[in-house]
């Protein structure tokens, strides 16, 4: 139990560090930076994502072969981790955040690359998908989290958790064991079996573990997975969405008690 608490604290620290790096200034993209992005990509990314960016690197033969997630195909896949609406491309800042943070249990954090190198890789991987030329992703506006939640707010969040059928996938206690998950009904965009996230273990939350991260995940959904966007349901009711966020966070707090 103590180790779990330490892991949770580590997640919070990493999240804080990422928030600071997310302010990095993006350099101009030109032929030289693309060439440098390719060099870095082939050293750091191609093993999983493939030299052509199609998610078919040598490691792709055993990563995501029979279950989600498979390494991203940069030429055509949608993106899970975004600040943009459902179905929209991510902003450059979203990509920067993902590369900096990594994805728990899936992709390492590339903080060893300096910021300039991360931007160069982003420019290179975007060059495979013409949609980045045609679409201009616009980030949604996310409010700052209000003050610490009350017991009543968490109770309201539980009611929302039931109302919005979260437990059908994530389980009644958030352990990722809802009936749809245990029946094996959940599939990703490649039709691979995918698990529902265990909400009692923040270290496994791929899109971040802060309250704002949860708010963002619930708003944008996770494209390419069964997790939908709830933006329409909570439009103009941000306070209710915070209550749902706090309830989800309380699930891991409850585990520690």
């Amino acid at each position: 139990m103590h180790a779990k608490r330490l892991k949770y604290i580590a997640i919070l620290i990493i999240t804080g560090l990422c928030a600071s790096t997310a302010q990095a200034v993006k350099p101009t993209t030109n032929r030289d930076s693309l060439r440098e992005g390719r060099r870095i990509y082939e050293q750091a990314c191609a093993w999983c994502h493939g030299t052509g960016g199609e998610g078919d690197g040598p490691a792709g033969w055993f990563i995501g072969r029979y279950s989600s997630p498979r390494p991203r195909n940069f030429a055509q896949d949608g993106y899970k981790f975004r600040s943009t609406g459902s179905g929209d491309l991510p902003t450059d800042q979203d990509l920067f955040t993902t590369i900096t943070r990594g994805i728990p249990g899936v992709m390492p954090a590339y903080r060893a690359l300096n910021e300039r190198e991360r931007w160069q890789v982003i420019a290179y991987l975007k060059s495979w998908n013409p949609a980045f030329e045609e679409e201009k992703p616009v980030p949604l506006t996310f409010p700052q989290a209000p003050a610490a939640p009350t017991e009543a707010a968490i109770h309201n969040g539980r009611n929302l958790y039931v109302k919005y059928d979260c437990r059908v996938c994530h389980g009644d206690n958030g352990e990722g064991d809802g009936p749809e998950a245990t029946a094996g009904h959940l599939r990703d965009g490649n039709n691979l079996p995918i698990r529902a996230t265990n909400l009692t273990d923040p270290s496994a939350w791929k899109n971040g573990a802060s309250a704002l991260d949860l708010f963002r995940t619930l708003t944008t959904g996770l494209d390419g997975t069964p997790m939908p966007s709830y933006a329409n349901e909570f439009a103009g009711r941000e306070e209710a969405l915070w209550e749902l966020v706090w309830y989800i966070q309380s699930l891991s707090d409850q585990q520690r008690k």
């Binding site: 109302k163 709830y230 349901e233």
Partner: peptide, 25 residues
């Protein structure tokens, strides 16, 4: 509640939760 998920290949066009009496999306 429904969960309307429109996609082309591996790219999502939209994936939205539609609870009873939802506003249109």
């Amino acid at each position: 509640m429904h969960n309307t998920h429109i996609s082309m290949g591996s790219r999502t066009l939209v994936n939205v939760a539609m609870i009873p009496a939802s506003r249109p999306v």
